[in-house]
Design a protein around this nucleic acid. Structure first.
Length: 138
RNA sequence: CGAGAGGGCUGGGCGACCGCCGGGCGCUGCGAAGCGCCGGGAGGAAAGUCCGGGCGGCGUAGGACAGGGUGGUGGGUAACGCCCACCAGUCGAAAGGCUAGGGAAAGUGCAGCAGAGAGUAGACCGCCUAAGGGAGCGGUCAGUGUUCAGCUGUCAGCGAUCAGACGCGCAAGCGGCAGCUGAAGGCUGACAGCUGAUCGCUGACCGCUCCCCGGCAAGGGUGAAACGGUGCGGUAAGAGCGCACCAGCGGGCGGGGUGACUCGCUCGGCUUGGUAAACCCCACCCGACGCAAGGCCAAACAGGGGGCAGAGCUUGUCCGGCUCGCUACGACCCCCGGGUGGGCCGCUUGAGGCGACGGGCAACCGUCGUCCUAGAAGAAUGGUCGCCGCCGCCGCCCCCCUUCGAGAGAAAGGGGUCGGCGGAGACAAAACCCGGCUUACAGGCCCUCUCGGGGC
RNA sequence: AACCCCGUAGUGUAAUGGUAACACCAGGGAUUUUGAUUCCCUUAUUCCAGGUUCGAGUCCUGGCGGGGUUG
């Protein structure tokens, strides 16, 4: 019982600085569906982190807060099943979010991002190996 | 019961588990931090940022101008463009609502179209013809002329009569009128005069019609708006032209009110339009900047170029005041480049909430008691559920009332309890803090008042 | 936080307080054998709600929406 993972959500699971957001966007790793767009970036910390960017186009302050809380709650409960990436989530819908929809979207997109990231890493590794060989050849 | 008016309150509740923010205590740890327990954690508008303040520092905060704001009176307030009471105007049958509600006889400006005329205006239709001028018609009078009639006179002519001369006869008388003369009368004609009529002309007067020049502003018509209303007098027609009353304006006196204002009396010239959310004038108010204010600590870096003896201090201009600098490695300003973009304080006890008593019509104020009630910073209140509450429908049972019935009971309606199903749950979230305003808002509750209908 | 600007036909712009104008586009019609050109016609809740005024796109107040500036 005591070894069951707990679903705490302290500050270290959050993206808090502008630089961290910029880096995530710059990683060019993203996926989206009708609900969310998620940008991601491997962080090497062994756990995922969450960042959010909720535009004023989504709605007024109440609706924007609701989106952020729903996203945080979905992330908190799913944190142990997510790959160790930094996520920046952007809502796409203008309606009030429901937990079930957001939770499904987050998990689905995270799975796709994990695959994509592995592929990207493999390609980069292959390119590096090729370059190393080319350098070693002459 | 229906229709309406004014005002106040509320903005789902309880619980479980998993989380979030910050506070206190405890434990682990060198520390960073972590964990546990306890209690706290969005609004009436937190919103828009439209006003007003507090607070903060400012090389002192002074003046004039500019600029901005406000605008009935009195009060409330830290202050206000807010609130209360009152006044005035206006809308409503009423309860009540609304009003940027100072000044238009300080000046300037504006008013399309229509209309005659749009501001010390104007004359289209219309009314008048008194004064002046002209034309026409009619009447009267005077003068004059034409024509006609009558009368009178003169002249001429005509014929009859008579007489004379003449002839006969003694005479009385007779004859005879061819010619001559005369007479009165007649007729005809001409002329003159008078009278009357007629038709003209001229003049005067009177009346009527028209025109010119004028007079008028009552009526029609235009307009959003046309220089008071009614009546009598007055006049050529009219008109504040005069008078009476009314409305309005201004002055004076008196009563009431702190005052805006109001009531009464009296006098005056008889009337002075609208617009200042047009410029403007008057009165009053405003130092500008804002918690990224402002202060402390820590970390990092790299300077270069230009302007200039001045530069800055409180936006604009001027004066005054102050500070720094004044032959410069230089104050200050501008441009390019570099670094950091961390922490703490400010930061929540306040024009504070609640209750009682007292003052005040009220807004509000005073005294006493009591309470502490969010402080985030990629920015905290969420998630999953359970129960209750709200609304609608259906079912069971019970009660009330009306009708029918002798009664049992039946039918329609209303209410309650229980159960089931379904539905609604708004607007909108602190960012230094208050007082207001404005705007958004599902549902629910309460109080007061007005009008209408019915019953007792 | 402190401010500034804008909102007019589908689009881009005009309009001393007095009939909402111009260009392009679109639609319809005429001309032409057809097409192009040309000509004519049609198209407005002046962002919304109040107010001032005889009269408001214009002036005032309050909202809504969009854009921008400084730190």
């Amino acid at each position: 019982m005591s070894d069951l993972p707990r679903h705490l959500f302290p500050k270290r699971l959050r993206l808090l600085k502008g630089a961290e957001f910029d880096a995530t966007f710059a990683a060019k790793l993203s996926a989206g569906d009708g609900v969310l767009v998620i940008h991601a970036r491997p962080n090497g910390l062994g756990h995922p982190r969450l960042g959010m960017a909720v535009s004023r186009k989504v709605g007024n302050a109440v609706r924007r807060n609701r989106w952020k809380r729903t996203l945080r709650e979905a992330f908190r409960l799913a944190q142990h099943e997510l790959p160790p990436l930094d996520f920046v989530c952007l809502p796409r819908l203008r309606e009030e979010p429901t937990f079930a929809v957001v939770d499904a979207a987050l998990r689905g997109l995270a799975r796709r991002l994990a695959k994509k990231q592995a592929k990207q890493a493999a390609q980069r590794e292959a390119a590096q190996r090729e370059a190393a060989q080319r350098e070693a050849a002459p």
